[in-house]
Design a protein around this nucleic acid. Sequence first.
RNA 1: UCCUCGGUAGCUCAGCGGUAGAGCAACCGGCUGUUAACCGGUGGGUCGCAGGUUCGAAUCCUGCCCGAGGAGCCA
Length: 439
Amino acid sequence: MEQTYIEDIAQKVGQEVLICGWLYNRRESGKIQFLLIRDGTGVIQAVVTKADGEAFEKALKLTQESSLKVWGTVREDPRAPGGYEVQIRNIEIVQRVEEKYPIDLKEHGPGFLLDHRHLWIRTPRQTAILRLRHEVMRSIRDFFDERGFIATEAPILTPSACEGTTTLFEVNYFDETAYLSQSGQLYLEATAMALGKVYWIGPAFRAEKSKTRKHLTEFWMAEAEVAFFDHEQNLKLQEELVKYVIQRCLQKRARELKELGRQTESLERVVAEPFARVTYAESLEIVNDLLKEKIASGEVEKLDWGDDFGAPHEEALGQHFGRPVFVEFFPAKMKAFYMEPKPDNPDLVLAADLIAPEGYGEIIGGSQRISDIALLKQRLKDFGLPEEPYQWYIDLRKYGGVPHSGFGLGVERLTTWIAGIEHLRETIPFPRMIYRLKP
RNA sequence: UCCUCGGUAGCUCAGCGGUAGAGCAACCGGCUGUUAACCGGUGGGUCGCAGGUUCGAAUCCUGCCCGAGGAGCCA
């Protein structure tokens, strides 16, 4: 008999099915037992009574997370969680858990759960989040594929810093030192010159000693790069992408969003309305005004020209607009060396960060890239970077340099926002953080 | 790296100078519609580690280790 998955159970009412899974919980009341079985697609209640004989005796032996197969008949019953249940005919215990399962149905702290991440991911909340992550990943791919982008890859092992500044993880590479990539961007610029429109979703590594709910040392970025794209086209693409992903999650993952208790009204508004846009200069005024009381009391720092936003500033800006907001035209010196200057004010660059509402902070950073070879060399010099390791990158301007633009989107940050959860560590199966390398 | 809080039973915590506790989990028993079921019983401890103060330390002091929350930095 073929296995039926729990998510399809509604189509099997009145029929005999085979459920293969794990025991999530068991409740018994004398001559009747209720088994809650999970199979990765959902949880179903199965019922067995003393009159069922052998199956009842086997059910008594089942311990939490024991693996099992259950044959029985599906019926609708309002008393069952989810509205459907299986009347058990036969049970096969695949493996009985002999030792006590470490994770209870309630009351655990984050430290304990992270130590048991390999088991924690079995719980309904975690599977809902991971399914949502899958939808985010898949919809990003679909978005780009539908628009004729080519998926290409950037190397993880790199000879030098892409952006020069951030701390990198060092790796022994035979007789040399290599670094784990902190961004695929520079390589994507090269593949964009080969293929026109490119994207990739890959891991990025930052050895920053950050310890906040918004940081991982290993996270996934969706990056895109388009030849002949300018700043305006770049922002339009980003807005379409974010709306597309959210729309897909709302459509296809309503069950998971409900499981997470996510209020979807704000997400629906994000899809319906245009994103806000402010210049960096305007944003300074807005943020300083919004936070003027906290600045006066010394709780938050006042932002001066050239300052980057801190967490409170980012949050205030997100709350103020109540929808995603692009902050654009930053001072050149506070951003990376490769960004194209604003034509009417070369002290600013054609770059933008996208700030999510509801306090979720920056989810995208992007810019138009420098296309002129002389300017690029000058910028490397200004930033105190050597030309030699960037020779291949300079070549992109020597041989048919064109205006081009791109961006990087933080997959976990976007997923955290859509899920409406507190900490991004739950949006990746095995989070890597400053004090956490295991399991 | 800095600031704050914490580490006591498998888990979540109480106890804060005088015999080591509760709830949940586990195990045993009861209950034919449970919903993180309920009711009764049983077992379960190097009180993070090291040193100090004291007649006496889980409790007070010092150092170290580990973790959580926040800051900075960033996606």
